[in-house]
Simulated assay, not measured.
Amino acid sequence: MHARSASSTSSASSATSARTAAQLVALLLLGAVLLALGLAIGSLGWSPWTEAGDTMRLILWDIRAPRSIGAWLAGALLALAGAIAQGLFRNPLADPYLLGCSAGASLGVAALLFIMGISPAAAALALRVGMTGAAFVGAIGAVLLTLVLARGVTQSLRLLLAGVVVGVVLGSGSALLTLMNPDILRAMQAFMLGSTGYVGWSAVQVMVVSLGLCLLTALGCSRTLDALTLGEDTARSLGQRLTLIRLVLIAALSLATGAAVAQCGLIAFVGLVAPHLVRSWGPTTHGALLLLSALTGGALLLAADIAARWVIAPQELPVGIITALLGGSYLLWLMHRRKAHFGGAGGSQ
């Protein structure tokens, strides 16, 4: 009897591993195909890289390549942050903009743009800090403020509520700075809607390093996330150091969100939808979930960026609008499906 049970468990584990490997390969191939499309679609629509000429090579190397790679990296960062947040807080509606990360990054960028209009000396200092630095400082400051208000990381509900409060307050601060200096309104509007149009190779380097650090950290803590699905008491009984690991995961969540927001602005729903899609493909451990979510998020944002360039070419839509439309539609469909499922179950009783 025990041998049969062990055999069935081993078979199920092998099937899960094979499915995960197949999904991994499929997502890598999808990412490669989308990257090729990203190189072939520009501001004027379809213009493949096979066209000869120094100008086309310059456009490919300096504009399309960093933009396409950057869009994939930003999507991977947001999706990874979403998977971390959902596992850490055991809440399927958690997303990367918890803890006030996005609002803090937005306030940092607004403060940078505001300072640049005050005086030449202030502008010189702001340029040294840069938009990336300002967004990072704002995101880290928001997380620290959230942790202070929540009195640590032990109470997940208090932490979530503190993050909502911090997000609202810091968002109001961004709006106030924008009203005080209307000259920054256009730049802040582009930031709030999300755009990959300004991503260059330096931004790609920042996101590559951030993704590597956050992914390694999250994978190292994946066993704790698996244990948390059984409850905090069970996780502690298994020897997990929950306070320390929560702090580490919150740092990874903040870094991933801050890096993506600093380079591409506020892009909604990618971090929320990508982990849901991965879970819909079958049960999996958090180790596989984190990796597959990152690959899925990269493909989603890169596809949205390609659509943003192509739909109304030669004009361009903010990529945040595309992700909001697609992500919101997906969640509405998911809610309708679950409502119909539970309604049917209730009727059958």
Rank of each mutant, 00 (worst) to 15 (best):
A26I: 05
L331C: 06
L332I: 15
G328Q: 03
A36R: 04
V261N: 00
G173D: 02
A122W: 10
K339Q: 15
V169C: 08
G133N: 13
C214I: 12
L301G: 02
A81V: 01
R309L: 04
R4V: 11
I267W: 06
L301P: 01
W61R: 15
L255V: 09
E316H: 09
Q349K: 12
L211Q: 10
H276C: 06
A134L: 09
T284P: 04
S14I: 09
V148M: 14
R67C: 02
M192W: 02
L300N: 08
V164I: 15
G327R: 09
I321K: 10
S156E: 14
P275K: 03
S10M: 09
V208D: 07
C221Y: 05
A150M: 01
S5Y: 10
T243L: 03
I118G: 07
S7H: 12
V270K: 01
V164N: 10
I41P: 00
L211F: 15
A26H: 05
L30Q: 04
G38V: 07
V109S: 01
L176S: 03
L149E: 02
I245V: 14
A203V: 01
I312H: 13
D183H: 15
G298S: 05
G282Q: 06
Q349D: 12
S202E: 08
A15W: 07
V153Q: 03
T50Y: 14
P318R: 11
S17R: 15
A126L: 05
H2S: 12
G346Y: 15
T196S: 05
I267F: 07
T285R: 05
L228S: 04
G87C: 15
L326M: 13
L216N: 06
A268P: 06
E316T: 11
G197F: 10
S7Q: 13
G258Y: 00
G100L: 07
L326Q: 11
L326A: 14
L127Q: 15
L44T: 13
S106L: 07
M188H: 02
W72V: 11
T132V: 14
G70N: 06
L30M: 08
L149M: 03
Q349C: 12
L107S: 00
A83H: 00
G45T: 10
V204C: 03
M180E: 11
A15D: 09
H336I: 14
G100I: 08
I306K: 03
L185T: 09
I306R: 03
A76Y: 10
M192S: 07
G239P: 07
Q155F: 03
T284I: 09
G212S: 08
C264Q: 10
R338V: 06
V168L: 15
